[in-house]
Amino acid sequence: MVFTETVLGQEVKKDTAFTVYSTFIKERKKYPEISIVKLKEYKNVMVKKAIVYKSIDNRNLLLDAFYNTSKLNPAVILIHGGGWKSGSKEHMQPMAAKIASKGYACFAVEYRLSDEATYPAGIIDVKNAIQFIKSNAKKYHIDTTKIAVLGCSSGGQMAALVGTTNGHQKLETTKKGIPSASVQAIIDIDGVLAFKHPESKEGDMASWWLGGTYEEIPEIWNQASALYQTDKNTPPILFINSQYPRFHAGRDDMIKILDEYKIYSEIKNIPNSPHPFWLLHPWFETTTNYIIKFLDRTFK
């Protein structure tokens, strides 16, 4: 279902096909013990929501910040899933708060979805969010040399692409005085690494976001695939995956390249889980523990 929502005085088209509640209703048929992960308050985490990080014409793009003021902390940018067409930054708030409580500054980011703008708009939005966060490093107590990008499902695909395209001029605003959008770590939670691949089953959802089918625009499908951007400059990466191979298409081929360049990678599997496991108990704690251990290993 698509509807128009007024946010901060502006009308924004929203697709509500993918929500936490609809996911819960669907998955509890197979996993009756599950429950929805709720946003928790932590005494050491400050929260500021609906921060405008970018304006396009009359459209403001927002992010939610979860951070502490104890010292300069590594930052984590969180990208929600929803098939590039649906979903919301609010989905990432519980995870952002939990990670922030362990000594990180976390930012759940809104980006333009496929009903609003096709690729590479969403990728550029996320990179602009990273630049905004770095530009405001003092306010959010961030060490700008320690930035991770994390995404789930389609957001995982985007996170991997953001991280494998550090410094790519076509995807990044490069003006004097604006910091780079480069990141030093990637966390891909069940996001594909290649749109066209023997393991991939991407179809209409990918076509809507990429602006056409593989037969029509093969170069764009390949350009948007992190596997084909992986090189010696790719940062360390953590893969957290469900039991479904289609959601990590291209991962093993990517790891072969990373191994050639001696770049650290790690795979964590969540057995007997649905695809959107990060939104639900009992898998949330396991997922966040894997993330925090990887971030600590990389940045602390």
Rank of each mutant, 00 (worst) to 15 (best):
I187G: 06
G211L: 11
L227A: 11
L193T: 10
F195Q: 12
K175T: 00
P198W: 00
G212W: 05
Q223D: 15
S200Q: 08
P235D: 00
Q223T: 09
K196L: 05
K176N: 06
D204I: 15
I237W: 03
D231L: 00
D190Q: 09
I187V: 14
D204V: 14
K176R: 05
I187A: 08
I220S: 07
G212A: 04
A194D: 08
K201D: 12
K201T: 14
I186T: 03
P179E: 02
L238A: 09
P235Q: 01
Q229H: 11
E199Q: 14
I240G: 10
T213V: 05
K175G: 02
S207C: 08
Y214A: 14
H197G: 09
K196M: 08
T213R: 09
I217S: 07
I240V: 14
E215S: 12
V183N: 03
S207F: 02
W209D: 07
Q229G: 10
K176L: 05
M205N: 11
G191F: 03
G203M: 07
S207I: 04
S182L: 01
N241A: 11
E199F: 05
K176G: 03
Y214R: 12
K232A: 06
I187R: 07
A194C: 09
I220L: 06
K175I: 02
V192E: 14
T213C: 11
A181T: 03
E216S: 11
